[in-house]
Nucleic acid binder design. Structure first.
Lengths: 213, 213, 213, 213
DNA sequence: GATGAATGAGCCTTCATTCAT
DNA sequence: AATGAATGAAGGCTCATTCAT
């Protein structure tokens, strides 16, 4: 025990320090993207704004691209974590209320980031597109569908791939566009209502069993 | 009268030549974007692939960016023209059939371009995002709404801004994502059905008057 | 006689036209130099501002440099012509008055051009320097010395090369600098007096015979 | 105490290295200007001749122009330093001897640089003219005037702006022209005498108090 | 671990000049 | 005589990356 402590404490600070460095660099990256745009994200400039030297950046990231990818992954983790936690809390509401809740959560998440850092969102999306990076998983669509099927009972027809794709993309892309454009609609009750209407209309439409009937 | 012809023909060839040059350059641009990706669109490479010298490119475009913008505008014009023409032809179908028709047209347009040049679409979208360029006008949403309101009669409630935005974005972004990802769903009947379901569900949902009632 | 006329008139218009073209081009050159600076004197820009095409410019001038050299020569001719004419008119004044007159003429010439087109003067001088072009001949120094020697009589000691150089350069460079800097002194009585004092002091100094003594 | 040394030496080498790099680049710049002319001063060529890469040049100079400006400033500092030192040493000579001394110093300075690097002088002057850079301060004129006034006593009339300008320009421009033209007069006793005559004649002329009277 | 001087491929762009019409 | 589309060498400069300290 006494032995493991020193090793641990000797390592911990190092790891903690490394993590701090990485965090600082990623934060500087986000700041540049948000405030100055993707074109200003040069390694030299990143070194300057992060307070670390170029050499240090290359100590932690293989190349410039790796920094951006790392940032994207981190953003994704944060958003997914938020969604999971929020879904957890609403487990007992009636199904359409739960759907509304899910939409609201997503909406709020986008409103939070999109409202403050449209350029960051824009830069990251553009980057993802350009490299063909995968999009954040649509965990929330599955949640909506799960909620709906549970209410509809066993008899509800399965949704095919095209329907899942359509529902998922429709919701997330509407929000994303609003964020990208810094639309004044983002964060309003009206937008939330419209998206809820889109989802409920889709689920309640012929071709899908009437849920809760 | 016969005398004015020579003057005319002396100018005509020049303009025709210029137009040919511009077209060739834009085609080479599209080819590079589609086949090699946005990073390979350097002025030198474009000169090489277009068959013209760098100097010639700069005779017709102010800078590299202007070439891409020009290409985007041209693509937009083509797509909008197609949509207009197609809308014209379906004027007399029943309203939900017309909606289905509009969706199909859009779907086909995306399937055509997206299917063959996903990288081109990707590159152009990424470029548009990065510069904050305006999106192609959503003429088709208005068409859908017009068709629906005509069927619903005078009593149909007006759609608010959020609803128009949501419906328009949902349809176009679902298709765009499918094209960007080169999804195998693109062009399938299943995807078309799912989108139609999305639209009809939205229009038939409480909050909107029941059309055709 | 009747025969030569047609030939003449056929040639005259051509030559006149050519001269007009050349004049127009040179004027445009001077205008660019004066208004936009030497860096803007590109063949394309010159074509644009002169109203002639690039091809036409190359019809009359071997290359871009030749245009500037031609302009410099023309300027020199104009200035020298003015000086000669002015010297002619003062032939009978007393010698120190003649010296004053010569200085005033030079001063006025510089004030006229330098005051209005300091950038043109600057550009032409810089160009001359850069290519090592010869400076406008110092005809006026010789005039001053001639006037002085005539008054001093045969006994006046000859001026050596260094003295001629010094006197000539001193006068012309003081004026040129004033023009180049757009000095507010240029054109003032005070500057004229100071230069006259410089010249008379030089001529009246030991080492030179006292003129008119 | 001994401990502080390492920190110091860790920084020192860096600065020393940077200074060496800058010096080398400036020397290469002067060499190119002197040997090949201003047109050959391209960034690529400078990199080649300095032995550093293009990137290194841009690490220390904002752009090509900044290199030349830096060189001009350095030259100016050197010349002004020489003049100051030389003035200091002659403080006790009689006034006209002091004037002669000052002229000689200037003359020697020009003869030294101008004689060896006429193209360098030419290039730097042309550059200065083109950008409208300020001329090296005329510290020496003030020195001449100070010496003269001290000898003339309190009663000596003040020199007006035009007189100071004329005297200063006359001396420096005569020398500069000689350097620019690589005149064989440069460095000769005859030229020195002629300039001294110019100065003394100016100072002794009516309109200025007779010095030493 | 951290540093930052040095690198250099390669980018975008300019502009004098040619030549077919 | 006049045109101007086309050319392409060459220039200034950026920036991701390396490596000796």
């Amino acid at each position: 025990m006494a032995n493991s402590e020193p090793d641990f404490s000797r390592k911990k600070p190092r790891q903690a320090r490394a993590r701090l460095t990485i965090d600082t660099i990623l934060e500087a990256t986000a700041r540049i993207l948000a405030e100055e745009g993707g074109e200003k994200l040069t390694t030299n400039h990143l070194a300057e704004r992060s307070g670390y030297s170029i050499g240090t950046i290359y100590q932690y990231f293989e190349n410039r691209e790796a920094v951006v990818i790392s940032l994207i992954e981190r953003q994704r983790e944060v958003v997914e974590g938020e969604i999971d936690a929020l879904l957890e809390a609403r487990r007992d509401d009636p199904w359409d209320e739960q759907v509304r809740g899910i939409v609201r959560l997503l909406h709020e998440a986008f409103a939070r980031h999109g409202g403050s850092d449209p350029r960051l969102v824009r830069a990251l999306v553009a980057f993802s597109l350009d490299r063909g990076l995968p999009e954040p998983s649509d965990r929330f669509v599955q949640a909506i569908i799960d909620v709906w099927r549970q209410a509809a009972g066993e008899g509800a027809p399965a949704m095919d791939e095209a329907e899942v794709f359509t529902l998922g993309r429709a919701v997330s892309e509407v929000l994303r566009r609003a964020a990208l454009q810094s639309s004044p609609l983002l964060g309003t009750r009206a937008l939330e209502e419209a998206i809820v209407r889109l989802v409920l209309g889709f689920l309640g439409q012929p071709g899908a069993a009437q849920a809760g009937a």
